[in-house]
């Protein structure tokens, strides 16, 4: 069975995000009242699996996220045979 996972990896709360800070500042310069801007990473993964939840969880834990600094979440949708 084929699946598509949409995975978001975020920095843990309290860790500063220099890239987000700079982008936020640029938006402020455009006149927006920005309070906070963060830059999570977004992945779309198409994969074959009999255990899609388990595989997606492992992909996050073993590579896509670094557990020291990240949290992650994902949604999985079936794409058919």
């Amino acid at each position: 069975m084929k699946w598509k996972a949409r995975i978001v990896v975020r920095l843990k709360e309290g860790l500063n995000d220099p890239e987000g800070r700079v982008i936020g500042k640029a938006l402020k310069n455009l006149g927006y009242r920005i309070e906070e801007l963060k830059v999570p990473k977004y992945f779309e993964v198409v994969f074959e699996s009999d255990e899609p939840e388990k595989d997606a969880e492992e992909m996050c834990r073993r590579l896509l996220a670094n557990p020291v600094i990240h949290t992650y979440s994902y949604e999985i949708e079936p794409l058919g045979e």
Binding site: N16, P18, E19, V22, N66, V68, I69
Partner: peptide, 17 residues
């Protein structure tokens, strides 16, 4: 080494990016 778990912790982007 940190990514491989041979040393603890992580190296994040410099404070001034």
């Amino acid at each position: 080494l940190t990514e491989a778990g041979l040393l603890p912790g992580a190296l994040r982007p410099n404070r001034i990016p």
